[in-house]
Design a protein around this nucleic acid. Sequence first.
DNA 1: AATATAACCTACATACATGTATGTAGGTGA
DNA 2: TCACCTACATACATGTATGTAGGTTATATT
Lengths: 208, 208
Amino acid sequence: MTVRRKQADRRAHTRNALLEAAARGLSTYGYATLSLERVAGEAGYTRGALYHLFANKEDLALAVVRWVEETWRAEVGRLVAEQADPVEALMAMARGHAVYCRRDIARVLMTLRVEFAGQDHPVGQAITEILGRLVADCTELVAAAGARGTIPAGPPPVEIARAYLVVMEAVAIQFAGQAPYDVELTERAVRGVLGLPPVPSPGTEARS
Amino acid sequence: MTVRRKQADRRAHTRNALLEAAARGLSTYGYATLSLERVAGEAGYTRGALYHLFANKEDLALAVVRWVEETWRAEVGRLVAEQADPVEALMAMARGHAVYCRRDIARVLMTLRVEFAGQDHPVGQAITEILGRLVADCTELVAAAGARGTIPAGPPPVEIARAYLVVMEAVAIQFAGQAPYDVELTERAVRGVLGLPPVPSPGTEARS
DNA sequence: AATATAACCTACATACATGTATGTAGGTGA
DNA sequence: TCACCTACATACATGTATGTAGGTTATATT
């Protein structure tokens, strides 16, 4: 049925299938419980193919993490960059992330972050680095908003940024796909962390 | 050296040591990666003692989960019951939980919840049940607050309760032990979810 | 004090997952 | 078409963790 002529094409295709299966698997089972046999099987291959394309389990997980980060930056990061006002940027990120989490692969980062917290594992380090960059970015936004007076005084910007991210992640994943509550509650939680007053009415207000 | 002890005393002592070590281990490594050899060793025993007191790994984890729930209800649940006003009760729970999370064992429930989400494992079921009861309790509080008009209109009470709990858990654990931000940011996030305006000034306001 | 029972340890059997080595089918270039 | 390479499968070796069975030491009972 599937006739694929070019080798490069073939390789990219199976690599992608394995990555997707691995992402789903990591979301559902986490790293430790994830069986590579299952991953390969779900992608329609065997472990042989997997080990041909990835050095080992760790390498596969790292590839998944990098892949998720890329898609996140492409989809959510773009929205943030469009906003000039720092508060608008933060709200755009929260809404965008909630929408992004409607894909099931979004769980990956949280699952792995929780699993490797307090351990010293390369995969955990990779996630820590990603989160570190995000915290840095959000800290700047929070500091800028504070300087402008668009958010009230409170804890240091870094701590607010950390809380902002953790809240955004938690709510967005908890309500993944349950529109419109996913966006609405993520927004609520994030506004609270930033010290912003609630938006007057949830449904009647036009979403600016 | 070996003080002569009553058998019941001895049993309870080692059981407690094993439970504590298991709680720490589950917090740090999660269920799958947790080695019973490590748990027993950290408690000062061998796996033999562990298998004498617990049927198997699953039984041990369930005991830890029940133990954590008990201590939580004793410490945080008590604070909630003292409050007459539903909003005050919810805020008391959030603050109390943030304080509770200063013990490292608080991570256990979150770690296991994330690890077993989307699986069909007895330990995951136990946590789901605990969370279900909590959601039910909080839903009532949210509904009562809505009826009183102390929180504004918004998503259905169940969804608000879910968001409330997930946010409380995430922030409290993220800032575990980092007083006073743990309490302050948990409070902020939770107020946001409930649709409450931020408290005017974070430090200058006397904690009512 | 002798014996029974509970607490605990050591040794072993089993299962399972990773990683590697080898084999085979399908594509590539002279 | 022939030599070669790449994609993938199968089979095996290894490590590690769980669970169990049979001992050894501490406590209880008579």
